[in-house]
Simulated assay, not measured.
Amino acid sequence: MSTEAMNWAMDDAPMPRTEKGKPDTTARHVLQVLGEHARPDGTNAHPSILRMQYRTGYDRTTVQRALRRLEKAALIRRDGSVDGRTRWQLAMELIRPKTDWSDLEREEDDFRAAATARKRRSRSKGVTHAESVTVTDSKDVTVTDAESVTGDVTDSTPSRHALKVRPSRTQRRPNHQQPSDNQLHKDSCEPPAHESEPSASALFDSPASGADATDGQQEDIDFAAFYAIYPRKVAKGNARKAFAAAVKRGVKPAALIAAAQAHRDHWARCRTETRFIPHPTSWLNAERYDDELPSAAADQQSGATGYQPWRNPEDQSAYYEEL
């Protein structure tokens, strides 16, 4: 092994080029193997093809093609043979131009400059610079610079930033259902004396419904009123479907709500346990809303309402009388 020939093959030898003008790294690697087996003057390099395959990892055909390209570039030349192997002589008089190193340094500087410019552009995209901003909300405020603010504020209320003012109740917002003007007027006025508090029966006999409610919204309102009255809360989803089916059969929602209230009062008078009250789904599917119920007087005559919980009397003698 010769240090001089090895250094020449690695650093000083001209870089072989492919037909497209790119560095021929395969041929360069094979040239380094020849330099390892040459004398200091570059002569007597005769490693076998098998040795070059082992050293480089290339197959036989790749090594042979690389040798032909090196020979064509005049970096090596044939100098006889030894034991059936071709003997090569390295053209150590050929020196790599110094511009190759300066070109690589220039390419490296260009790459770093481009990377810095890309990073600067990506950062600038996240920041929006504006020389002047004019705000014309509910106040006359004009911002002409980031350093100066001029404006006329005539309101006596505590000042707030114009950009943080929340919209009022009556301001219409997109993508939201707006109340009607009549509804806003009703919300802002006190109810008359004769309409101060609706009766409990009025709530059940005619459930509340919005004038602008759609069919689906009205159905949800009616079912909510029914489910609130029915004393047993089980399987709400199935009950909703059964309620819709009953309405589809022609039963008015107000009739269902009234029937549910009547059954609730009957079960309360009879002190029926919750486990004996049918599920709302079963009650609706079985059309129990058409059942005839005994009157309140009949429930009272049957003794259903005769029970009264015992309360401690002020006169203790009454306690002994009950015993």
Rank of each mutant, 00 (worst) to 15 (best):
E4L: 01
N7K: 03
M10V: 12
T18Q: 11
K20I: 00
G21H: 12
K22E: 04
D24N: 15
Q32C: 15
H37Q: 12
A45I: 06
R51A: 14
A66M: 13
R69D: 08
L70F: 11
G80I: 06
D83F: 10
W88L: 06
R96M: 08
P97C: 07
T116W: 02
S124V: 01
H129F: 02
D140Y: 05
A146K: 10
S156V: 08
S159A: 03
R166S: 15
T170C: 01
Q171V: 12
L184D: 00
C189L: 11
P191T: 09
A200F: 15
A208W: 14
G210E: 11
G210Y: 00
D212C: 00
T214R: 12
I221C: 07
I229K: 14
P231W: 14
V234I: 08
A235P: 00
V251C: 08
K252I: 01
P253S: 10
A262F: 05
A262E: 11
T274H: 09
T274Q: 10
R275E: 00
F276N: 02
P278A: 04
H279K: 05
H279G: 15
N285S: 13
D290M: 10
E292Q: 14
P294W: 02
A297P: 03
Q308V: 13
P309M: 13
R311A: 13
E321H: 12
